[in-house]
Design a protein around this nucleic acid. Structure first.
Lengths: 118, 118
DNA sequence: TATGGTACTAACAATTTTGTAAGTAATGGG
DNA sequence: CCCATTACTTACAAAATTGTTAGTACCATA
């Protein structure tokens, strides 16, 4: 989330791995807090501070970083209102909305897997 | 993949985040090479060296680590044959096989997303 | 004039993941 | 005896992610 080295082996490997559409897709939502954030937005727009309240353990820094990446990747849309105190809200983009039915299947799988290991 | 600190904030956050079944599910396949490995196994058993050949940039160390985690998480089954030189093969478990249809949807989404950003 | 609310940013430190390089064991074949 | 093969392990180093702390700007209100 900081800057990455342009030509580290790590970076080069990542690039080549991302040719796999599946790996690519998972990487897009792979940040620590990203799925949690996206889930909160499933029911509509939320302000920065609202998301923060819904995810108690996230810090402002992390929330900002993850939102910025999601925005850069076209998964959330950020809207700034010219007010004081500032108001900014976030919402899912159409391509992110397409993920929802897949998430729900994955989530069911997750629940099944959890039971299995217990 | 090395050992983790038991009570770092990082670790505690991860634990709390994993309560979300979706986040949990994604984490299970979240390692750098995991999905690639699982995909190779979709068509049946493979030996260590075969996987290695199919994923040219992975190192033996990384392949071992990722396979070990997948095994620990019940996604692959490891079979050791008492031969010399050693022979070991890996295959998907039933719960991993349940993921396949979901992967294919996700993979399609990944492909659509890629086009969108280009 | 001081305070408070909102949505951040910057500098730094801790933690975790990933990669590098060099081994290991067992045994069959030359 | 020496080498090749296979599936690893170990010690270490580099890179990436995550977390901590302390700011910032703006204006309305007390």
């Amino acid at each position: 989330m900081g800057k990455r080295k342009e030509n580290s082996t790590n970076m080069l490997n990542e690039k080549s791995i991302m040719e796999c559409d599946l790996t690519y897709a998972v990487c897009k939502v792979g940040g620590r807090w990203k799925l949690l954030i996206l889930c909160k937005l499933e029911n509509g727009k939320l302000r920065f501070s609202e998301i923060r309240r819904l995810i108690p353990k996230i810090t402002e820094r992390m929330l900002t970083l993850q939102l910025r990446e999601l925005e850069k990747d076209g998964l959330v849309k950020r809207t700034v209102y010219a007010e004081v105190p500032p108001r900014v809200d976030y919402e899912l983009t159409p391509i992110a909305i397409e993920l929802i039915p897949i998430w729900s299947k994955l989530s069911d799988w997750g629940a099944r897997h959890k039971k299995l290991v217990k």
